[in-house]
């Protein structure tokens, strides 16, 4: 038992009950189906822009890239262009590898004592599961555009086809699984987020540094995935009605269709919560990964002169001016001067 994750779990359960009871018992469809989603989108956009502009305002006086390779030097010394970039192109490669493949996480290693000798091991699972998590989340997000676009673009349909590549079907009298076709991304997302959660529970060092703010998004995303999977494969939902609502939101003609159950509103409320919570949380690494000054700057401090942006003009008295002022006296006492 850990107060941090119990707290986060309780918050998510309360959110679930709020939306479910609010819709099923109190009939607050308009509140949870229209007002909350719009509010969440506004908070997300304004908050995201505000946070990023806050980072943009804080000027970086000097280039501070973290490097782990040979710097650009003499022509016969081989430079490590990705780990110690010196041009914009190198930086772009470095950033692309970081943003798309989480390269720094891949380089994560684990230190342990083996037969009383220190050894370093490749620690691949966190990288693997976070890669699976982020990409399946992206696919799930893009796939959901079918609810917000009419007509559905060809590319979205193709993503659905690829996502539904595995035709897993189980048919019996009591339970039929696999129709509508299984989307692998949803299951991978749930599996990966579960791994990320269990990692925080079972590894003592990680549990020690985990806070409620670490567990909350995990539970929330778990809730989103579970409600989505429930609606698609088990309890079923009127998809045409759902699209009527979501398309209404996207076209600013919100409507509340009949016959869409409470579970859908829970799903929508969870997603809205995630969007509204986004700018205030660690989830801002979506923007932050592009703006980390230790990674997005070329290491060319020696090659290029960087002038501190907040330097103000300082009155100086150069040696030339000094000599002009005192030349006669200097010559008089026999001091050497540059200009006779």
């Amino acid at each position: 038992m850990n107060v941090n994750y119990i707290f986060s779990l309780i918050v998510v359960v309360v959110l679930f009950l709020l939306a479910y009871v609010g819709v099923e018992a109190a009939g607050l469809q308009v509140f949870f189906g229209v007002i909350i989603p719009y509010l969440a989108l506004v908070i997300f956009i304004v908050g995201f822009f505000y946070r990023v502009m806050g980072w943009a305002r804080s000027t970086v006086p000097f280039r501070i890239p973290t490097t782990c390779g040979q710097q650009e030097s003499l022509p016969w010394i081989k430079q490590n262009k990705i780990d110690n970039p010196s041009t914009l192109l190198h930086v772009l490669v470095r950033m692309a590898l970081e943003v798309l493949l989480f390269r720094s996480l891949f380089r994560n290693s684990r230190m342990e004592l083996k037969n009383s000798r220190l050894s370093y091991k490749l620690e691949i699972w966190l990288w693997l599961f976070s890669l699976a998590f982020h990409y399946s989340f992206l696919v799930v997000l893009v796939r959901h555009l079918r609810f917000f676009l009419e007509p559905v673009p060809f590319i979205i349909k193709q993503i659905e086809v690829v996502d539904g590549f595995f035709r897993i079907e189980f048919v019996s009298e009591v339970l039929t699984v696999g129709l509508p076709g299984i989307y692998i991304s949803g299951l991978v997302l749930l599996a990966a987020v579960t791994f990320l959660f269990l990692r925080r529970i079972f590894i003592p060092q990680v549990r020690y540094i985990s806070l409620a703010a670490d567990y909350f998004p995990l539970f929330l995303i778990m809730g989103i995935a579970i409600t989505g999977i429930m609606m698609r494969y088990f309890t079923k939902v009127d998809v045409v009605g759902v699209k009527e609502l979501t398309l209404g939101l996207a076209t600013f003609h919100p409507t509340i269709p009949e016959g869409v159950g409470g579970l859908f509103y829970v799903h929508l409320f969870f997603v809205s919560t995630l969007f509204a919570y986004f700018p205030f949380s660690k989830l801002m690494h979506l923007g932050g990964v592009f703006l980390s000054p230790t990674r997005n700057l070329a290491n060319n401090n020696r090659a290029v002169r960087h002038i501190n942006p907040w330097n103000y003009p300082v009155p100086v008295h150069t040696y030339e001016e000094y000599e002009d002022e005192f030349r006669e006296k200097m010559v008089g006492v026999g001091l050497p001067v540059e200009k006779e």
Binding site: I45, F49, M53, A56, T59, L149, E150, A250
Partner: peptide, 28 residues
């Protein structure tokens, strides 16, 4: 250094992408 212009450009691109469903359906 001060890369405010680049960051604002990036933010605008981000804003256009996330509001895609809002302007894609316009007038349909």
């Amino acid at each position: 250094m001060n890369d405010k212009n680049k960051i604002i450009a990036g933010l605008i691109i981000f804003g256009v992408i996330i509001t895609f469903p809002l302007w894609y359906n316009m007038g349909k």
